[in-house]
Design a protein around this nucleic acid. Structure first.
Length: 756
DNA sequence: CTATGTAAACAAC
DNA sequence: GTTGTTTACATAG
């Protein structure tokens, strides 16, 4: 035996065959190779159609008034208890009907409950004056459907549409890029420009460049890059090559995997994707980075290896419960709005001398990276016009989630505490694993756009199971949050069968898209992590076949939990995406390793999976909740109230939404970064769309509002482009006047008494 | 202490 | 040689 100082013995591992069952034809490699570009668009439409198709009637209590100053725009006051999704659907339908001639933009605000009073959003307080009145549009919520999948690394040409993320600085295009001629950055946030910004704006990208010397490859695509680069940022491409991306391997792997339709990728493709999107790895990094990638794949439970039917190809997937469907794209969006501080961090780190820095630059700095502060432009109503289309369901979710903003920052790669995790991390957590169950409502993981697509595509999935008893594993075990409602059609059969196999296999393999998710949902992952004991070991935990019987506790759903069930239900209308929904990771986040728990088995890691009920996800450790910023879903306090639940927005909290900054209060929001707007790349984007009525006085300092007005959040639904954007409304109260504002001033309260 | 990065030893192909 | 696992250690926060 070899002994190395560092590395003790490694027990022999035997590889267990993964019972993979995929849908018959699908699994194969082809997928990996085939980017499916085509689907993107279609999906989108599908979703759209769905939405439209649903005819909805407006629930009672809704008030719709024409916007005083904006053509084709109506203000819709929605009672707190209303079903937003339905409303959005109805409005969408309405807008579509009207087409360009009729009202096609709707400003949704909650009333009744008096949004103002709502905990979160209220501006109230400090008043001062706020020049602006009407609204500030913050960010588009939706993910862009189309673009997402497209990210495959080398999709030669195929990319249908377009917007490839790669356009960015990181030379993403190299491979694919060549063809990328088409890459349109345009609205799409997809590109990687963020890099540019980060480095560029910051202070220091320069130092880094030096490193570059010598590498000629760098040229890569300067030319291309340039095009896209924002004017200001220019260091970009070089930096991209020289600087290590601010993402952890885990994050990059996720980006890579999520860039594919199937949400799975072979190791090799992962390498390729990373190299394509982050030239640093291609040109600068030591070869060891691949080892690190592999290490991460094996280490983190969220990464699940799936074997093709023939057993020859292994695909890495992200456990549905943990997958937030993060994409570089999304992250990019979030980062667009530069946060000075963040950048600083980033830059600083990077600046270190090579020698020094080579070693560890925290890729996703815990704080900063994960949490991406988003800044809203206050000055101008910024409307991103998105090409983004938000599926209604999402939209709804967004609203809810958004509204309930608890935190300011979006966590990009949060760590999810999986059940087990929850235990461990918990402060109190004793040795025993069991004690803490994470019941919190699931936190909503973020859902990014992508997932949606898929779902949309597949209608079948919608089924939601409403309620089921939740299982909690008694002691040590923890469940995964299963995203999926109960399985639909494909029962776990395949999975089970495989599971039957006597030997515990590392069954991670999931069959095709659906199946995986479904399977997962069913599975209960038990974790026992004895942190203390295990503290050192980072061994990846494995899932066990469902067959395993572990003690489980069933909980009836608490009031709070119930909602979720509902969520699932609702989605059906719009074809809710299963997988997406799932994440509840309680808190942990997908990122966290702990998804799978290992049993104490020393040598052979076994993964234990218990059949989960869909609800399992609900079980999230309460404690954790606090940690995550996104609890929005759980705690619907926003102006819109409880809406979320019904919407099936579980995910809202997920990325897409997350991308939207949550502020405790509008004021906060405003204060957060008044001026950045200008710098905002988007500024360029057409704000035109929505011109919010007021911008007459673009004063950044919105910080204070006059007494007679208050800010509240709302959403802007633009049926012309199917976008849903978040907006901050300044509601003025007629009686009190303080504002000298000109004609623009609109006293919404006049129109909608409830607002007051 | 945790999360992350890196290196390395092995194992199974 | 590639892919996967796992351990050890280093480092930042």
């Amino acid at each position: 035996m070899k002994t190395s100082p560092r590395r003790p013995l490694i027990l022999k591992r035997r590889r267990l065959p993964l019972p993979v069952q995929n849908a018959p034809g699908k699994t194969s490699e082809e997928e990996s190779k085939r980017p499916l570009a085509q689907q993107g668009p279609s999906q989108v439409q599908a979703s759209k159609e769905v939405a439209e198709s649903n005819t909805c009637k407006f629930p009672a209590g809704i008030k719709i008034i024409n916007h005083p100053t904006m053509p084709n725009t109506q203000v819709v006051a929605i009672p707190n208890n209303a079903n937003i999704q339905n409303i959005i659907t109805a409005l969408t339908a309405k807008g579509k009907e009207s087409g360009s001639n009729g009202p096609n933009k709707f400003i949704l605000i909650s009333c009744g409950g008096a949004p103002t009073h709502a905990p979160g959003p209220q501006p109230q307080a400090q008043t001062s004056n706020d020049p602006k009145r009407t609204e500030v549009l913050t960010e588009t919520l939706g993910p862009k459907p189309t673009a997402k999948d497209v990210n495959l690394p080398r999709p030669p040409g195929a990319l249908p549409g377009q917007k490839w993320e790669s356009c960015g600085m990181w030379s993403t295009r190299q491979r694919a890029g060549g063809e990328a001629a088409g890459c349109t950055l345009d609205n799409s946030l997809t590109n990687i420009q963020w890099l540019g910004k980060m480095s560029s704006d910051g202070l220091g990208s320069c130092s880094i460049k030096q490193e570059m010397e010598g590498k000629e490859n760098l040229h890569l695509e300067q030319s291309q890059v340039k095009v896209e680069e924002p004017p200001g940022a220019s260091t970009s491409w070089q930096d991209s090559v020289s600087e290590r991306p601010p993402y952890s391997y885990m994050a990059m792997i996720q980006f890579a995997i999520n860039s594919t339709e199937r949400k799975r990728m072979t190791l090799k493709d992962i390498y390729t994707w990373i190299e394509d999107h982050f030239p640093y790895f291609k040109h600068m990094a030591k070869p060891g980075w691949k080892n690190s990638i592999r290490h991460n794949l094996s280490l983190h439970d969220m990464f699940v290896r799936e074997t093709s039917a023939n057993g020859k190809v292994s695909f890495w997937t992200i456990h549905p419960s943990a997958n937030r469907y993060l994409t570089l794209d999304q992250v990019f969006k979030q980062q667009k709005r530069p946060n000075p501080e963040l950048r600083r961090n980033v830059t600083i780190k990077t600046e270190l001398p090579l020698g020094a820095r080579r070693k560890m630059k925290p890729l996703l700095p815990r704080v900063s990276s994960y949490l991406v502060p988003i800044q809203f432009p206050v000055n101008q109503p910024l409307v991103l016009q998105p090409s983004v289309k938000v599926p209604l369901p999402l939209a709804a979710s967004l609203m809810s989630s958004e509204l309930a903003r608890h935190s300011k920052r979006v966590r990009i790669a949060p760590k999810v505490l999986l059940a087990d995790e929850g235990v461990a991390p918990l402060p109190a957590a004793g040795p025993a694993r069991e004690e803490k169950l994470l019941l919190g409502e699931g936190l909503s993981p973020m859902l990014p756009a992508q997932p949606i697509k898929e779902e949309e595509i597949q209608p079948g999935e919608e089924t939601p199971h409403l309620e089921r008893p939740i299982k909690v594993e008694s002691p040590p075990l923890e469940e995964w949050p299963s995203p999926c409602p109960s399985v639909k059609e494909e029962p776990s059969q395949s999975w089970e069968d495989s599971s039957h196999s006597p030997t515990p296999k590392p069954n991670k393999s999931y069959s095709g898209l659906k199946s995986p998710a479904q399977c997962v949902s069913e599975m209960l992952v038990i974790k026992r992590r004895e942190r203390r004991e295990m503290s050192r070991s980072r061994r990846k935990q494995h899932l066990l076949p469902p067959c395993v019987d572990e003690p489980e506790l069933l909980f009836s759903e608490g009031p709070g939990t119930l909602r979720r069930a509902t969520e699932f239900a609702l989605p059906s209308e719009s074809s809710a995406p299963l997988s997406q929904l799932g994440y509840s990771q309680g808190e942990g986040g997908p990122f966290k390793t702990p998804i799978k728990e290992t049993l104490p088995i020393s040598s052979t890691p076994s993964k234990s999976v218990l059949p989960l009920t869909p609800e399992s996800w609900r079980l999230t450790p309460p404690a954790k909740v606090g940690e995550f910023d996104f609890s929005p879903v759980q705690t619907p306090q926003g102006p819109f109230g409880p809406l979320p639940d019904s919407l099936g927005l579980t995910d809202l909290s997920t990325t897409p939404l997350k991308s939207i900054p949550l502020f405790d209060s509008p004021r906060e929001l405003l204060n957060s970064e008044p001026f950045d707007l200008t710098s905002d790349p988007f500024g360029g984007c057409s704000p035109s769309d929505m011109e919010v009525p007021k911008p007459g006085s673009p004063e950044p300092q919105v910080a204070s509002l006059s007494a007679n007005r208050s800010l509240t959040e709302g959403l802007v639904l633009d049926t012309m482009n199917d976008s849903l954007s978040k907006i901050l409304l300044d509601i003025s109260f007629p009686g009190l006047e303080e504002d000298p504002l000109g004609s623009d001033n609109i006293s919404w309260a006049q129109f909608i008494p409830e607002l007051r």
